[in-house]
Nucleic acid binder design. Structure first.
Lengths: 208, 208
DNA sequence: TATGACATGTAATCTGTTACATGATTAG
DNA sequence: CTAATCATGTAACAGATTACATGTCATA
């Protein structure tokens, strides 16, 4: 209902808090030390962002204060926050999303299984497939039109973008395969091991 | 001397203007219609950015005003602007640059040949090679440490990042090969055609 | 007791987004 | 004449960066 215009950092925070309550400091450490370095770990970004999310009632912070312990505010996602997160994840992937960068798409996908369900992850991958196809066609068209007049470095840079998209496309296909394979496994041996290493051989299935 | 802290959009503008004078409107169209869509084409971004560059004397705008012609300001890069651009291009690529995104690195590379020289392009590629190697090692290390506890979607998302980096690495190697091959061609037939389609067969050279 | 890691925040500043405003020229 | 496109801008606002400020707790 609300316009719901949350910047990427907000969703990153929301997604992490949905998985596990954490303080601002914890979140900063995550951004600073893991491969989520793309998101700012500066207090001037994190704390105001948390404040905004709390004002929107998407997260709530409670003061943790015990003896022999520094005072800290631990945030957790609210029900509303979970809904908001799901809405974001469930948006179908557009070519525009792709132009803005794979980053945010991958963040949505990474959170999808925990925040929603494995079935959703697969839906996301399929809408991504369509977007990539269109994007790749556009790129190739543009490339064919201008490659003749470009200096070598510019041409190679363009090719880099195309190759990256092709690699993404290949990954996308493999990821779909992995999910389809797991679905089958689950139908055979119902609801056994949900997380962790999924069945060990989701590749190279003969299409019988 | 000056701290020289120009945002990416500024360098994109400077690079384009170094290749060919253009008006704000021309530049907006480039960003809107080509694969440089990642940069904002909104007037609220372009015109102030041009204003800042002009204030720093990196570009200069002259009013073009003829009969039967709309008034427009055409900007061109100054000598200072060219120096600034070269300094930016010549910075060696760090792992940090890589974390922030391939985008800006590729922009630097794309401009390198026109703004500096083919030799510089090759230097840039080689420093990139080192950065990628280190980054990839870091990624793999982190992945090995956490992959066991991740849900499938998160694990696949991580793999996507690794694969993208590997694809980038492969492209980097091929690009180096292309430049080395061209250097040889130029030594044989000295300083013939510098720009445009570069010798037509820089690939698949027998290493005799 | 002094240093460093923990933990939270604020203020100034910069850049970009969105939306609006203006006016000239061309095509129908 | 009027609509669309060319062309340039401004103003309000949101979000990020940088730097600073504050205070607690553990340890050397």
């Amino acid at each position: 209902m609300t316009p719901s215009t949350i910047p990427a950092l907000g969703y990153a925070l929301l997604g992490l808090l949905q998985q596990k309550p954490a303080s601002g400091y914890d979140l900063r450490k995550i951004f600073a030390s893991t491969s989520m370095k793309t998101y700012s770990d500066s207090p001037g970004a994190i704390y105001p962002a948390l404040g905004r999310l709390e004002k929107q009632r998407l997260i709530r912070g409670t003061i943790e204060d015990g003896v022999g312990m520094r005072r800290r505010r631990v945030f957790h996602a609210t029900q509303m926050g979970l809904y908001e997160l799901r809405e974001w994840i469930n948006r179908s992937v557009t070519r525009d999303d792709l132009v803005r960068g794979q980053q945010e798409i991958m963040l949505r996908f990474a959170f999808s299984e925990k925040a929603v369900a494995a079935a959703t992850s697969l839906i996301l991958l399929r809408s991504l497939e369509v977007a990539i196809q269109g994007h790749l066609a556009e790129l190739n068209e543009e490339f064919d039109a201008i490659k003749a007049v470009l200096p070598l470095s510019a041409r190679l840079a363009f090719e880099c973008g195309i190759r990256a998209t092709e690699s993404f496309q290949q990954w996308n296909r493999d990821a779909i395969k992995a999910y389809v394979a797991r679905q089958k496994t689950e139908q055979t041996q119902p609801a056994e091991q949900r997380d962790g290493q999924p069945a060990k051989r989701e590749k190279q299935r003969k299409k019988e």
